[in-house]
Design a protein around this nucleic acid. Structure first.
Lengths: 325, 325
DNA sequence: ATGAAAGCGCTAACAT
DNA sequence: ATGTTAGCGCTTTCAT
């Protein structure tokens, strides 16, 4: 491996000068700079990032933590990674299935192997996670209000209200719900929206409600329960597109027609919604990824990259135009 | 940040001894070890991976390079990352859209920021890529035969033949094809299979063939062409599940029935195939991810983790049972 | 403007 | 079994 020392020798100068031209910090005469550049080129020099990181106590890499894979992860990470790349940041992906694994990843901030961390999903309690704030900036996809943690959330209350009203307006009298974990703040917001809605429209039947902690199998199990219900809901709102897609696939397998027998709605605006063809709500996950990165970057550089306001939208690919407005 | 030096001081010993207990290399008396352990615990010691990497000239991290995101990437990376994790490896994801970006990532092997690299898709020519072999092991998803590059491919010839025979047996007389780039070795294998098949079964019409270099929009464009054809094929085989899904969505949008009007087949066995509900072929991408990691690991450690033989399977979720056998 | 030298935290001979 | 020492490659003060 060729090092700055080799370059220095060949260019007839010192390590310091070479370091200056490589990093672009400090003054160096035109003449010396050219010699160094020439030497770098001749020796095929590639700077050692590890040495640099050790010396500077930073790595220009962010950690992306998630517990299980679900399809939205792929889309979300891809925008996060590409946004980070443009600002010179790498990202390490960690699938941390347990508390300890997650802590190990968080620990990496202490030594600046990771400069900052985004948590898509988590294993440890928020108080544990928050304590890592001392090591570097933290952002998350969860809806939480903690002084030290940026949350890229969007309020589900108005969105859920909007969906409920729209369905009611179009004649749906029995509306079912597939929620994620009860402890989740988004679930709470949805439940509140549902409660308030029921007060206004008591005649709409909304009792069919299911809860799942994991996305895997949630849609399938919920669909099984739909199939066994005596009076199944005519429309079901799912907490994620993936769950909605699984729900639909299971109903169709059982010979049901979607959306005729049951209209199923997701809330991610992921590719899957478009492909399977069901209405969904764009909760702006792409902008959330962008905002999250910007937050971490701003913390790290004392800059002011913009954090944009999110503007959720109903999305139906023009296929459910009768549902519009 | 607390370092081994701090621990040494507190435990009344030397850095070396601390290093020995932390890394688990070398002898250290029970007594000293306990002192060190105690000190580590009291000071909340977290080893500095960067320093370790610099000293050992390795990082225990692999690079995963891909040019554009497409849905299978998410699934593929998630198994690759989790498999790597079990062996103590991290993985950095790079979306390299151009030649230079890809070279930058490959360069990282020179300084062992990356110990090895997997290329899902590539930008540079194989000869350029192969030259990086000098820095560390290389694996790819592409089908290539290069001395220094492991290819996790599976031969598409027998698979394509199998699909064609099966369709013919069930009465399909006009079979369409959506291929990826002509230069791709898998496409070549499929074309050869098609050619040989046509010799045996000249009466099956197979002229409807489309080629696409990018997955984005491929399915949609192909479907538009299907819709405009005077005599469109009764079955279409797509080179990826994602393309198949897009093809189906577009046909359905146009009021066509799938599979009644046109049977569409994918070849990834991704989650999307199951959710949209079309037959596909399991080309064992999960095992390919596993094999690729194992190869890289074996190169790095002179070990013999098994490289399993792949066994592609027709997959139809029991929904197309009339197509079976 | 440039060079010398100390240091980032850890590892690994080598010596005892 | 343990300590001393010389790196790993680069950055950054501090002189000059």
């Amino acid at each position: 491996m060729t090092t700055i020392y080799d370059i220095a020798k060949l260019a007839g100068t010192s390590k310091s000068t070479v370091s200056r031209v490589v990093s672009g910090n400090g003054y160096v005469s035109k003449e010396k700079r050219e010699n160094v550049l020439k030497a770098m080129h001749n020796l095929n020099y590639i700077p050692n990032q590890t040495a640099r990181n050790l010396s500077q106590q930073k790595s220009n890499t962010l950690g992306f933590l998630v517990s299980d894979y679900f399809p939205l992860i792929g889309e979300f990470t891809s925008v996060f990674i590409q946004v980070a790349r443009r600002k010179g940041y790498n990202v390490n992906l960690y699938y941390t299935q347990d508390k300890q694994g997650e802590r190990n990843a968080l620990d990496l901030m202490a030594t600046k192997v990771l400069d900052g961390i985004f948590l898509m999903t988590r294993n440890n309690s928020w108080s544990v996670i928050e304590s890592y704030k001392a090591f570097g900036p933290l952002a998350t996809w969860h809806r939480v209000t903690l002084p030290g943690v940026y949350s890229a959330y969007v309020d589900h209350y108005p969105i859920y209200t909007m969906i409920l009203k729209r369905l009611t307006k179009h004649g749906y009298q029995r509306i079912g719900h597939v929620f994620s974990s009860l402890r989740d703040a988004n679930t709470q917001a949805r439940l509140q929206a549902l409660k308030d809605f029921s007060r206004d429209c008591p005649r709409v039947e909304v009792k069919w409600q299911k809860h799942f902690k994991k996305q895997a199998m949630a849609g399938e199990i919920a669909a099984q329960q739909w199939l066994q219900a005596k009076q199944p809901p005519q429309a079901v709102i799912c907490y994620s597109d993936y769950v909605a897609a699984e729900f639909i696939a299971t109903l169709r397998d059982a010979g049901k027609k979607v959306p005729e027998d049951c209209l199923v709605i997701g809330t991610d605006n992921s590719q899957i919604a478009k492909l399977v063809g069901f209405p969904t709500v764009d909760l702006c996950f792409r902008e959330q990824a962008q905002n999250s990165f910007n937050y971490l970057y701003n913390q790290l550089h004392n800059e002011k990259l913009p954090i944009t306001r999110l503007n959720p939208q109903w999305v139906d690919w023009g296929r459910f135009s009768d549902l519009k407005k």
